[in-house]
């Protein structure tokens, strides 16, 4: 619970101290990228803290390089 609160605190801090000033200064592109990164970051962090199982994106590597792996892997 406390870890979720920590993430919530960081999110609010990011929103108030960094994101809002970016919008106010008119740095729309910076603010939009910030918002996207923040949303994905918060989602991943909360999933991590609450131990939700997400599929590993690195499994894709094994699929992409499968033909080459037969000759390369130990």
């Amino acid at each position: 619970m406390s870890a979720t609160l920590l993430i919530a605190f960081l999110t609010v801090t990011a929103f108030v101290w960094e994101l809002m000033p970016l919008f106010k200064k008119g740095f729309i592109k910076d603010a939009m990228l910030y918002l996207v990164l923040l949303m994905v970051g918060v989602y991943l962090s909360v999933c991590t803290i609450l131990l939700f199982d997400l599929p590993s994106p690195m499994a894709l590597l094994n699929i992409i390089f499968k033909p080459l792996l037969k000759g390369f892997a130990p």
Partner: peptide, 14 residues
């Protein structure tokens, strides 16, 4: 700061 949250989550999910 958002990259920190992102990397923290991603390093677990990886």
């Amino acid at each position: 700061l958002p990259i920190f949250l992102f990397i923290f989550g991603y390093s677990y999910v990886i």
